[in-house]
Design a protein around this nucleic acid. Structure first.
Length: 282
DNA sequence: AAGGTCTCCTGAGGGC
DNA sequence: TGCCCTCAGGAGACCT
């Protein structure tokens, strides 16, 4: 599932293979892929045809390509989205959108579960309108550590819920939340109010560390669903300590990792290193 | 206002 | 073999 490191891998691929190219034509194969675009399919195509891609950017899990008319095409990969650059004319399964580029390659948006999508919008400052509400991510040089810690400790919720709140810190999804919490030996239901400043700072450092390590290995991948812009999978899933490790011994203490329902999904933790807090509310 | 829940979606995999 | 059920989860709508 694409979180920040995976999206960053895709962004770098776009820089290498798409920036500088002009879009000759656009085909939309599935209406849902442009459901967030206000003007519908026809307007989406009209606004992209003939445009030149001048940059590829990212904030958290949101990705966008800036265009030569000060607009941008914003992409969210959702659960299963892929950006593929292909030189052939094949139409892979779950192809949703295709861009014909001026070097006779095509940029393909492929998305099995259709939670992802693209839209064209105006850019306000350096950020598209639809991305303005998203917080800076922890790999952003302008991310404000002290402000994050203060806002986190001011919230009244569980720590994992806060990490998944993209308006507080962006780019963290279920995988990296569980990995960072394991590294910090924190239970997901620890209250943000009761978190010590040093605990919050350590957690942020662990988020950065796990994301940086994943990025160095090309992102996390469990199956063929996530691939980078050329269709190559990442290898970080071999390095996971908590996520998906149900039944496996904790690499720190040997206790069996458990999976628990959380927010209509799953959380993985070590029952010994990450004990449930007394009076847990979340 | 802020926090919590629901919903969208498809295919893999398990149980019978 | 085949059918049905469950599960995966990002983010915005909606509710409290």
């Amino acid at each position: 599932m694409p979180e920040l490191p995976e999206v960053e891998v895709v962004r770098r691929g776009l820089v290498d293979h798409v920036v500088g190219r002009t879009i000759r034509d656009v085909q939309v194969f599935h209406e849902r892929a442009v459901r967030r675009h206000a003007g519908g399919i026809t307007d989406f195509i009209d606004r992209l045809s003939g445009r030149t891609v001048v940059g590829a950017h990212r904030r958290g899990k949101f990705l966008w390509m800036s265009l030569d008319d000060h607009s941008a095409v914003v992409c969210h990969l959702g659960m299963s989205g892929q950006m593929l650059v292909r030189a052939d004319r094949d139409e892979p399964t779950h192809l949703r959108i295709s861009f014909d580029l001026d070097d006779d390659t095509r940029l393909l948006f492929v998305d099995q579960r259709t939670f992802g999508g693209l839209l064209v919008t105006e850019v306000e400052g350096d950020v598209p309108l639809e991305v303005l509400h998203i917080a800076r991510d922890p790999l952003d040089p302008l991310f404000d550590d002290a402000d994050f810690v203060a806002r986190l400790r001011r919230k009244d919720t569980g720590i994992k819920r806060a990490l998944l709140d993209q308006t507080l810190i962006s780019g963290v999804g279920n995988i990296y939340a569980d990995e960072a919490l394991w590294r910090s030996s924190l239970h997901y239901a620890r209250g943000t109010r009761g978190l010590r400043r040093t605990e919050a700072e350590g957690l942020l450092a662990n988020i950065r560390a796990v994301m940086s390590e994943a990025l160095a290995q090309g992102g996390t991948s469990f199956d063929a669903l996530y691939v980078n812009v050329n269709g190559q999978s990442g290898y970080f899933s071999r390095s996971l300590d908590a996520y998906g490790q149900e039944g496996q011994p904790c690499r720190r203490c040997g206790t069996t990792i458990v999976r628990e329902p959380f927010m209509n999904r799953s959380s993985f933790r070590c029952p010994c290193c990450q004990p449930r807090p007394r009076n847990a509310r979340w």
